[in-house]
Amino acid sequence: MPVAIDVKGLNKSFGDKHVVRDVSITVEAGRVTGFLGPNGSGKTTTMRMLCGLLTPDSGEGTCLGLDILKETGEIKRRTGYMTQRFSLYDDLTIEENLLFVARVYGMDDRRRRVAEALAGLGLEARRKQPAGALSGGWKQRLALAAAVMHEPRLLLLDEPTAGVDPKARREFWDQIHELTAKGMTVMVSTHYMDEAERCHDIAYIAYGALIARGTVAELIDRSALVTFKGEGPGADRLAPALLREPGVEMAAPFGAALHVSGPDRALLERAISRHRGDGLRWTEGRPTIEDVFIHLMRGAEDNFR
């Protein structure tokens, strides 16, 4: 597979805050890579460096085969970037926004392309409405349409689905996969676990450092986490008590059941054995990706704090 992104040792500081530390990442073309990590972990900054919006303090590499330090103009031309906030013009109509984007990218045959984009969105009837009047889900669809209108080879999406309802999110992800099927490479940051599972593979970043990379299944296997599921009356209320036990990294209620996980099987078994008597039934389960992330976050805290 050809490589879309290949960067090494990226660093970026704002003042005395070291926001991105030695990030090296390779992304194969035509894949959806989920960019995960706690708030403020450097996801947005890394993405901005990849698309030429920010200059790294140090590091090197290529994006779409172009030097991320020297060829930012060309990278911008071939990349679509969708920001966290809706960043089209609220006071321009839907059509005017798309026309603006078409002009900025110097596209030919603009009227036709805009008409196609509107048709693709199903917004032909509303094309004279101000973009600001759209609902959250529609705004995000419009922003996506605007970001891919110039047919970029790489699409960077920064928490595109924050605050969007599940149906709109589902449709959004269907669209992402349609685009990658045509050869586009997508990098998307998210906090949603279900979205992480829709990605071909995951990059996990914490405290500015890339600490895990791979598919969801790989990450779960590699984590060597042990998870038990407790069911029975009052199981969901045991979380605080269990979290105080040594070896319990996570204890969280899922409905009426309780998920308990930790890296050390012996310690975990000892912890839950104390709560076996209360009429609870414990079964071993496979850790979820969320368990793995919380585990990773803990590990990162120990390393960087």
Partner: peptide, 14 residues
């Protein structure tokens, strides 16, 4: 303030 500058700068516009 509206965050549109970021998108604008991500385009080829100099």
């Amino acid at each position: 303030e509206r965050g549109t500058m970021e998108s604008l700068l991500a385009t080829p516009v100099r």
